[in-house]
Simulated scan of single mutants.
Amino acid sequence: MPPAEDPLSRVFHALADPTRRAIIERLAEGPVPAGQLAEPFAISRPAISQHLKVLEEAGLITRTAQARWRLCTLTPEPLEAATDWVERHRAVWSDRFDALDDVLRSARGEQTGENP
């Protein structure tokens, strides 16, 4: 799959994988050396490195060299942008579902001869 072009698509692509979501949850507690991030997963270190690369390209984490380790830190701004997008669309769909409920209630009332 070619990499996503826009920042929001990269964030959603990164969040689509359960391993990457687990990494983000772990980093929410604070910075962690990359090697330690691999410990709870039953996958190779190169696979973890690929996951970290996707997260970094999405802007969700930063990796900085510290002595002989690469320290990974969560960057919350892209998550906030994704949350804002979801909330805007949730509000639109919620309004649409409320309108649909009104139409269905009205239709039921008409079928039974009741007033809406």
Rank of each mutant, 00 (worst) to 15 (best):
M1W: 07
P3W: 15
P3A: 07
P3H: 06
A4M: 11
E5A: 13
E5N: 11
P7H: 05
L8E: 00
L8R: 03
L8T: 01
S9V: 04
H13A: 10
A14K: 02
L15K: 00
L15Y: 02
A16P: 01
D17C: 06
P18M: 02
P18S: 10
T19I: 12
R20T: 03
R21C: 15
I23W: 03
I23S: 05
E25K: 15
R26S: 04
R26T: 03
A28I: 03
A28P: 01
P31T: 02
P31E: 05
A34D: 05
A38M: 12
A38D: 03
E39I: 09
P40H: 08
F41Q: 02
A42G: 13
A42I: 12
R45N: 06
R45H: 09
P46H: 15
Q50V: 12
L55K: 04
E57S: 07
G59E: 03
G59F: 05
T62Q: 13
R63E: 04
T64I: 11
T64M: 14
T64Q: 14
A67E: 09
A67V: 12
R68N: 12
W69A: 08
L71W: 03
L71C: 06
L74R: 03
L74M: 11
P76Q: 10
L79P: 00
L79F: 05
L79D: 00
E80S: 09
A82P: 00
T83D: 06
W85Q: 02
E87F: 09
H89I: 06
R90Q: 10
A91D: 15
V92S: 05
R96K: 09
F97Y: 13
L100F: 11
D101R: 13
A107W: 07
A107M: 11
R108N: 09
G109N: 08
Q111C: 14
G113S: 07
G113E: 07
E114Q: 11
